[in-house]
Design a protein around this nucleic acid. Structure first.
Length: 997
RNA sequence: GGGCUCGUAGCUCAGUUGGUCAGAGCGCACCGCUGAUAACGGUGAGGUCGGAAGUUCGAAUCUUCCCGGGCCCA
């Protein structure tokens, strides 16, 4: 079947065009191609090559916070690691030497708990070393898994040499810092209540508790006021003639803790009433609970006396303990924020040795952490005689009987509630104060003056003025640390102001032992020198050595005789009879894992000499939960050690929530699996998504958002593809070197290409600055808009005609290609940190390199500098005002007159004073910007000028060109189209291009 | 319960010190192109700025309270 002639002719011209071509595929195929990129970078040893390249360059010290080596990485890791990678890659491309040493937190309860649970009953008969071995294997397994997953995210880090908190060298470093703080008097030992298993005589962690129902006593106890007139007086009630005394009524479900009662806590804001009941008895109870309490006790004869009193007015009233006779100090009423009106009486029995909240109240008001209960659950000799040697569970009844017979028991009933039990023995646990190690945040200490703290904090913390960790921390938070976002400072300050002393000891196996030794005589050996000796041993043998070696072996490099800090008696004994004579036994405590990760600035940055001169890092970047976590646990040891913050800046991000703003959790089933996301979208798309986020606050994540990111990615990819595809015949070298590069001068200022390059320079300026200030979202938007609007919609659409139809080597086409090349080159560098795979793939295509060409890699390049090209200052007005107005008018006319193709339109622009600037521009540029065949600029008709000025639209006159001949090559109807000698209908330009003129 | 923080078009977000700040992108609707084509372009419709009260000549923007999220504590 014969083809129609015109169609055949049209086809023939297609071959005469410079149509785009490229090897850069439209379809990214990230799932297959990203792993290939990973292998390529691995082969070229990209990370090390960059270190080489940046040797001697200014350092930017980023310090990676160690994730816990447990389980697969989740969305939070994806966010965190990609942000870190964006920082490190961008600083590197700014020219900094910016290493990225990834780390893992390896010790700690979650791993130990899992291991012990898997072992079941076997665990009980195993030595700590055996448990530790399994824990280590577990940690190693997950370090390996997570490392591989993080690499799959295309993050570029020193994965060959990560830091692990279980490495012997790391452990030794942790001990070094501990020794230093010890030398400054910041470490102390004191009692603190912990969950205690009587059956196993051990402290338990939260995760080792199981909650079962248990029947307990619920008792209401009357504590007699020590100063009855004061109570009546505060309630504005006259004391009764009978001389009856007022009582404070408390409620408890643990009668056995009453011997350790040291205070009563009230809420300052609640109302309290003085209640008369049972004829002539008086008790203080929270107003709101009075009726409930009386009803529960079956008391109907009662009344509130006087007006209610806020708790604040009860403070410092004193009382007599029902059966503890001679207190060192008076029993007082104290304020506590945790008092509620849910249960009880609104007055809370406070025993600092038997409850965490009680303990905190005790700390605040300088009460001793009194705990008369021994390891075996029996009362010691400090308890009333009738309780001594009695187990707490038996003591309950004794206490209740005692209270009843002395008239202090208001009411008693049994009830069932959920109560924590030891998950191994299944017996109920108690709160019991035990000896723990603390870092004192309010202990005055002196930093060595001179060099160590020179230039440290602006507040003048150096020198010999005593200060405290809390004061120092607040000072550097205020003055020395930059916070992104800025409110991080307030958050940090608030947390520092209210934080208690840091309990750094744990009673577990999987961790770094606290290197203390005890003697049967009650001496403790824990001095800077002894700790450093253990650090030496640990460095060589690892922390397992603590569990294998004797005290003598652990202290092999310790010279007790020369240790000024050793307790006198112990020192004398050792001096006389040697270390062995001291009868040392090893502590069974380990460090809180936060202490380990909190000294990473020393173990990683200092010891590996990562930071120049003063040892400060430039940035910590973590979730906002770390204001209390790692940022603080790093800040405090660093302040103690060197008197300055370990970081100059802190960048935090929010947490992942689902599309409805709810937190993500496995139990809610609203999580997304990182592995699945990578499999479906690829890392570049995931990274593009991260880069699009406002990370200051909560981050909504949903599969749909990843799809959208995929759409955006494809759009950008296509723009890049179009850029590349129009450079296939372009040699970027200067003409002098045989290339095609156009040198832009002032003569080009009014060209479209000059405008595009000016836009590029602006993008480069903004983007560089945004990278510098971590404004990733803003940068993302700028890049996206540049690709979509500036390039795809405006510039690339406009230059298509000249790229395709002009003679390949025409100056105009080469000029445009020069601009295209510069744009592509700069754009790929700018997006390289975001899309490492895609940018590199495109980079190879731009340079006609194969993936095996290890020298051609965008990640070895620097960010572009903004290149200023002379540009007409009215270009923005052309794009914004002229183009938009013209397109609107064209659209209006086309729909009104049924003109489908914009090329079937011409445009007369009547120039008046407001758009006079248009005269400076090439009419062909002006028409190409609108996709029409021609633009004619005309002066306004002589009359009536007023009418034209009042109607903006009248300035644009769209002309229907459908009756005019159409160039069969360029499809334009520009008025020059006529039959040429090859028989085709061509415009002048196309005829020239084909040599037909 | 406390500290910090967030709540602006269907979605994701911009909106310095209160007065053209009611915007962008996506999505959507309609249209075009078919020489970026499992692409590209154009036009357009969407919001009483979580709710209430207050300060002010004037508030998305300041104050108070309330509702609903998040992190960290308790």
């Amino acid at each position: 079947m014969p083809e129609s002639t015109p169609k055949a002719e049209k086809k023939s011209y297609k071959d005469t065009l410079n149509l785009p071509r490229t090897s850069f595929a439209m379809k990214a195929n990230l799932i297959q191609n990203e792993p290939a990129s990973l292998r390529r970078w691995d082969q070229m040893d990209l990370y090390r090559r960059l270190r080489e390249q940046r040797r001697g360059a200014p350092r930017y010290v980023f310090h990676d916070g160690p994730p816990y080596a447990n389980g697969s990485i989740h969305l939070g890791h994806l966010l965190n690691k990609v942000l870190k990678d964006l920082v490190v890659r961008s600083r590197t491309m700014m020219g900094f030497d910016c290493p990225y040493i990834p780390g893992w937190d390896c010790h700690g309860l979650p791993i130990e708990h899992k291991v012990v649970q898997e072992l079941g009953d076997k665990a009980r008969s195993m030595h700590a070393l055996q448990i530790r071995q399994r824990c280590q294997a577990d940690a190693e397994k997950f370090v390996k898994l997570q490392r591989q997953q993080m690499q799959r995210l295309l993050t570029l880090a020193d994965y060959e040499n990560p830091y692990l908190t279980m490495d012997p060298a790391y452990e030794a470093a942790v001990l070094e810092v501990f020794a230093d703080l010890l030398s400054k008097g910041l470490v102390y030992r004191a009692k603190k209540p912990v969950h205690w298993s009587i059956a196993n005589r051990t402290a338990l962690a939260e995760a080792e508790l199981e909650y079962y129902d248990r029947e307990d006593h619920s008792i209401y106890v009357l504590f007699e006021a020590a100063d009855p007139p004061a109570v009546f007086e505060r309630f504005s009630v006259s004391p009764p003639a009978s001389g009856a005394k007022p009582y404070f009524m408390i409620w408890t479900t643990t009668p056995w803790t009453l011997p350790a009662n040291l205070a009563i806590a009230v809420h300052e804001g609640f109302d309290y009433s003085l209640v008369r009941f049972a004829g002539d008895r008086f008790a203080v109870v929270a107003s709101e609970l009075t009726e409930k309490v009386m009803r529960q006790a079956g008391v109907s004869d009662w009344e509130k006396l006087g007006p209610p009193l806020p708790g604040a007015r009860l403070l410092e009233l004193t009382y007599r303990h029902p059966f503890v006779q001679s207190p060192q100090h008076p029993f007082r009423v104290l304020p506590a924020p945790y008092v509620t009106l849910e249960d009880g009486t609104g007055l809370v029995h406070t025993a600092p040795g038997h409850g965490v909240e009680d303990y905190q109240t005790g700390q605040k008001h300088h009460l001793p952490t009194y705990c008369p209960v021994q390891e075996d659950g029996t009362f010691d000799h400090t308890a009333p005689q009738w309780l001594q040697g009695v187990e707490v569970w038996k003591a309950n009844d004794l206490v209740i009987d005692r209270l009843r017979s002395s008239g202090h028991l208001f009411h008693d009933h049994k009830f069932t509630h959920s109560y924590p039990h030891d998950w191994r023995s299944k017996t109920p646990v108690i709160f019991r104060a035990t000896e723990q190690w603390f870092i004192g945040v309010d202990r005055p200490f002196t930093l060595p003056g001179g060099t160590t703290s020179a230039g440290a904090t602006s507040g003048g913390s150096g020198g010999d003025q005593p200060t405290t960790l809390r004061q120092l921390a607040l000072r550097v938070t205020e003055h020395d640390v930059q916070f992104f976002p800025a409110w991080g400072r307030n958050r940090m300050r608030g947390m520092l102001e209210s934080r208690p002393d840091w309990c750094i000891s744990r009673q577990r196996a999987w961790g770094l032992p606290i290197p203390a030794f005890y003697t049967a005589q009650g001496d403790t050996l824990l001095t800077p020198a002894s700790v450093r000796a253990v650090a030496d041993a640990t460095r060589h043998h690892g922390s397992d050595y603590w569990f294998k070696a004797t005290p003598q072996e652990l202290l092999a490099t310790y010279d007790a005789v020369r240790d000024p800090d050793i307790p006198d008696a112990l020192g004398q004994k050792i001096e006389a009879h040697g270390l062995q004579s001291a009868g040392l036994h090893k502590s069974t405590d380990i460090f809180d894992v936060w202490w380990e990760s909190g000294t990473s600035w020393f173990a990683v940055i200092h010891q590996r000499r990562q930071a120049p001169d003063n040892g400060q890092t430039d940035l910590y970047l973590e979730g906002s939960d770390q204001h209390r976590g790692w940022f603080q646990s790093s800040l405090l040891p660093a302040l103690g050690y060197m008197g300055r913050s370990p970081f100059r800046a802190v960048l935090t991000h929010g947490f992942m929530v689902d599309k409805d703003g709810r937190k993500m959790s496995k139990s809610l089933g609203n999580t997304l699996e990182v592995e699945a996301l990578l499999k479906e979208f690829g890392a570049d798309v995931c990274r593009w998504w991260v880069n699009s986020l406002n990370t200051d606050n909560d981050i909504k994540a949903d599969l749909e958002f990843f799809r959208l990111a995929g759409e955006e990615y494809r759009k950008v990819r296509n723009t890049i593809r179009f850029l590349l595809s129009n450079l296939y015949d372009f040699d970027p070298r200067p003409r002098s070197a045989g290339g095609y590069r156009h040198e832009f001068t002032a003569a080009d200022a009014a060209t479209l290409d000059a405008w595009a390059l000016a836009e590029l320079a602006q993008l480069v300026r903004e983007t560089r600055s945004d990278y510098e200030h971590f404004r990733f979202r803003k940068l993302h938007e700028a890049v996206f808009n540049f690709c979509n609007h500036t390039l795809s919609a405006v510039y690339l659409a406009a230059i298509k005609d000249r790229l395709y139809c002009d003679p390949a080597g025409s100056p105009r086409r080469r000029r445009t290609q020069t601009a295209l090349y510069q744009i592509t080159d700069a754009l790929l560098r700018l997006i390289a940190p975001i899309l490492p795979h895609t940018a590199d793939e495109a980079w190879q295509s731009l340079h006609g390199a194969s993936p095996r060409d290890m020298a051609r890699c965008v990640h070895l390049e620097l960010f572009p500098q903004p290149v200023e090209v002379p540009t007409d200052p009215d270009w923005p007005a052309v794009i914004r005002d002229y183009r938009d107005s013209a397109l609107q008018q064209i659209e209006l006319v086309r729909t009104g007159q049924g003109i489908d193709n914009p090329l079937d339109c011409g445009l007369r622009v009547v120039i008046d004073s407001t758009n006079a600037y248009l005269r400076r521009f090439d009419p062909i540029d002006l028409s190409d910007l609108c996709g029409i065949s021609w633009v004619k600029l005309e002066p306004p008709p002589p009359e009536p000028p007023e009418a034209l000025k009042t109607s903006g639209r009248d300035r644009y006159e769209v002309v229907d060109l459908r009756s005019e001949p159409r160039c069969e090559r360029s499809w334009k109807r520009d008025g020059t189209v006529k039959s040429r000698r090859d028989g085709g209908l061509l415009c002048h330009r196309c005829a020239q291009a084909l040599g037909l003129t």
